[in-house]
């Protein structure tokens, strides 16, 4: 609904959000199709491999999300690729963290498939590095939950990450910079009018993005290491993105 004082851009960005149930069903269907080859296995390696498959399918939905947005459509494919190469892992981390913010349970994790898994169960199924990453993500999600970040703010934050004017060799750098400025402005206006008792909310929302960047870098390093060890399922978008960025 159109609320007074709600910046139209915030509503437009929120409108780009995909139907969660549709994404969920698509991913479940794909994972069930793939399951044939790994049936019966249940160990640390198969848990990691399942996480990779989920992340891979989530990446497909992230690309679809970006393509659905008017601003993104205005860019040439070359620039679209550069933006996504730069932030795919951040968007994956954000997708996971925002799901936990809305799930709002400290002791369990909501997967993109809609399954809820108790945190200790996951931590027990993965190695120490991944366990630490999952816990850091959970801490960050709980801090964002304390900040009471809402869906409209989440929609804006995703675009601030996607339209990063610091990406090198962009053909239309000025446009990307302009979009980020517009989204920043709309988010600032939104937080000031919707949460007038919380004047610092805008700046408080941007702080965690640095941590998301750092978490996503650590996740990429871990994926690289696991890929070299032959543990990552091959021929997927996840690995293509990893190679494109690291090559």
């Amino acid at each position: 609904p159109q609320l007074p004082g709600l910046p139209p851009l915030v509503l437009e960005l929120l409108g780009c959000d995909q139907d969660e149930l549709m994404v969920q069903n698509k991913i479940i269907a794909h994972l069930q199709q793939e399951q044939g080859c790994s049936r019966g296995r249940h160990d640390k390696s198969s848990t990691f491999s399942q996480m990779c498959r989920m992340a891979d399918q989530t990446l497909f939905s992230i690309v679809e999300w970006a393509r659905s947005c008017a601003f993104f459509k205005e860019l040439k494919v070359g620039d679209q690729m550069k933006l996504l190469h730069n932030c795919w892992s951040e968007l994956l981390v954000l997708d996971h963290i925002f799901r936990q913010v809305l799930h709002a349970k400290e002791d369990s994790i909501l997967l993109v498939t809609g399954q809820e898994i108790k945190l200790p169960l996951i931590l027990d199924e993965v190695d120490a590095t991944l366990s630490s990453l999952v816990q850091k993500g959970q801490n960050l999600a709980m801090r964002l939950h304390t900040l009471q970040v809402d869906r409209r703010e989440i929609a804006c934050l995703k675009f601030i990450v996607l339209f990063n004017p610091n990406v090198k060799m962009l053909e239309n750098q000025a446009f990307v910079e302009g979009v980020q400025e517009q989204v920043n402005g709309a988010l600032l206006e939104y937080t000031l009018t919707t949460y007038p008792q919380f004047q610092e909310k805008f700046s408080q929302l941007l702080v965690p993005l640095t941590e998301v960047r750092s978490l996503s870098m650590q996740a990429e390093d871990y994926l690289c290491y696991m890929n070299l060890s032959g543990e990552v399922p091959c021929n997927n978008l996840l690995i293509e993105m990893l190679h494109a960025k690291r090559a």
Binding site: F60, V77, L84
Partner: peptide, 18 residues
């Protein structure tokens, strides 16, 4: 030099109206 990302290029280039 960055390796070309063929799958991503395909996903961005494909025509959904067809």
């Amino acid at each position: 030099k960055k390796k070309d990302n063929a799958l991503l290029r395909y996903l961005l280039d494909k025509d959904d109206t067809v």
